[in-house]
Design a protein around this nucleic acid. Structure first.
Lengths: 213, 213, 213, 213
DNA sequence: AATGAATGAGCGTTCATTCAT
DNA sequence: GATGAATGAACGCTCATTCAT
């Protein structure tokens, strides 16, 4: 098992029953292997080997790879949205929320590149994830519109445009450098109707207040 | 063979030697099958069956699926960029070129949804295609900047942001309805620095002048 | 599975773990099939069918036919040289050792014709076997030279000449009748410098003392 | 087509009809390809490619690879035995004939290594060749016996022992250096009953008289 | 619960062979 | 006679899945 890997699920299951611990081992291994070989190219035995389990053990927990990915991706989504939400507790300014959420997501990608890789593959297999994300985003957008900061009508295409800008950043620069992060946030604000000047100001202001570390 | 399928390569090869006609049958079949099952899930025998050929025949023409995809995607790219370029002959206004190219691409997707599907998969396998597209786009962007219409610095992320907006339209609405088309063009102009009002005006003006049919 | 087949490896593995027993089934089947169809003409499925296993099972044990042959031939070599050595324990007369080793090998061929067939094919694929045989032979030759019985200089060609005389006997008369056996032993002694008369006397003396049964 | 190849059959067919010339091209190509890849590993298309012919052309001349090998090997045998016989015209001394035939064969192997490779593969497929060789050899052996030079009874095993000594020389040292040649001739004479001293004398005498160049 | 040996369907690939041109 | 495109049987090999231990 890779030594320097963050073991999200293992941590959550220490002290619990054996069944839960084995399941967590499969989930953590799945993250590593999916991230390094891609979902399609991953074979069941890659995951069980990585978890130091027998191949047959897999089928005590999951019917197939898809079901595992669903579990992994959902767990990751819960973890990530939890982290982001904690940070936005109490923020009521639409643009700030949108910029901050975007920036934090890219920061997490920087710290845990495997998570995001897997999450992005999961989104194609687990439609629920997509719609959950859409719900979060919609709220912030409508908040910004009411406050007069965004000049858009919220629809499915708009939400997906925003998500695709984030996805593009992750694909092009998986470590999400500062430039990538700023350019992506500004692009989203422009898309929502900001002028270039206002977008830039907004972004640097949020970065200074919330991300200075 | 599906009856209602446009047979791009078959048309190009009627009257030519048998070898060329068989190759075209493989290419056309590949478009259909890749589009319906996706590249990864497609088996060689799916393609040869669709073309009413024996499985072994495939290997008289290509070493593997990748090589075929490369050939298909390149052929499609040539066809599509040719069509778009023809229409933009002589246009020197940056924003008009960008809007028109986007709109025409989405129109072609409406007429030939299979083409775009396959082309988008091909872009991940054939890097040359990506960079060719990037070249085209860069020129128009720089034209618009010189003319004072765009407020951006051209970099790889920007170009990919624009492409991702087009891709999002195709994924969400493969038939690319008029609303999708307009919203996508406006989004691109906003990304390039337009105000919402200017973007909308620009788009409707281009649509009226060049797409009224 | 052929009923009258000696099952060398099966005998060695009864009582052991399943993995070992399956491996032995493959080895024994390989001997039978290689011997009857030849190595080249043998298909993986011939071996697994003969062993009443699924084709895929083969790959749980060997990467390819070559690896299996290596295992089979090595096992056979160990068995055969073991038997011959047991019989020569304590013999210090060079010509006697050479004649006896030759005769015993041909006798084993008579009892287990499949073993020798496979071993001879294996020698071309597993160089270690060849050189092991060469080592054995060299020692006996040099013993005979020191004792003044052989008039030769030991080199690679000489060793191979002796081996080729044995091989010729096996090819022409796989059951190695008494005449073949005697003529081969005498030929080897002549090659090593004996006169016809001495060679004949030597051979019949060894046969009487060691092979009368 | 390899430039430095001796083209036995091509030479024999220049000026003849096209059918004959194409057949010769196949035969000459077969020698080269069989010699370099081995008979088993050679595919029909290897031969036709080498002959700059279409694959289908092969079947205008032969039913399969075996038939071609039979033709090639027979042609080579005729050529080689012809050359050796020419040289032995009028020689009536048994040992001299045996030594000379052996030496000349090894010399030809030195000049045309491909011929011998192919011939040796052919012997396993074309039994007639083996028996023809046996006939030649028998005559010389019986001549030597009548003359009191050989102390053997001629049988199939004896003849094959002699052939195997020659084969061993060719396998171990395809270029058949002088030492290999001498040691092989002496081995044959020893096998036929000569003492080491007489064998050596006989060989060097023949070499001096007939091979000094 | 965990194991890991066994399975066999299903794929890619080769290549001798046929046959219309 | 020569061509070379097309064929399809036959093989090697992988891997998800089962199940006795």
């Amino acid at each position: 098992m890779a030594a320097n890997t963050h073991q999200l699920f293992r941590e959550q299951s220490t002290g619990k029953k054996k069944r839960e611990r084995t399941r967590s081992a499969l989930l953590d291994s799945a993250i590593s292997v999916f991230a390094s070989k891609g979902f399609e190219a991953t074979r069941i035995i890659d995951i069980t080997n990585h978890a130091a389990l027998a191949n047959g053990t897999f089928y005590n927990y999951y019917q197939d790879k898809d079901e595992l990915l669903r579990d992994v991706a959902t767990g990751l989504a819960v973890e990530i949205t939890g982290r982001i939400n904690d940070e936005m507790e109490g923020l009521t300014h639409g643009p700030t929320r949108v910029v901050l959420a975007t920036a934090r997501l890219l920061q997490i990608a920087r710290q845990e590149p495997e998570w995001i890789n897997v999450l992005m593959e999961g989104v194609f297999i687990v439609p629920e994830l997509q719609s959950a994300t859409v719900q979060y985003l919609r709220q912030d957008l409508e908040m910004g519109i009411k406050q007069g900061h965004f000049n858009v009508t919220v629809n499915l295409l708009l939400v997906n445009q925003i998500l695709s800008l984030i996805r593009t950043a992750l694909l092009l620069d998986p470590q999400a450098g500062d430039n990538t992060m700023a350019q992506t946030c500004e692009a989203i604000l422009r898309l929502l109707g900001s002028t270039p000047a206002k977008a830039m100001k907004q972004v640097s202001s949020v970065f200074q207040r919330h991300l200075e570390n």
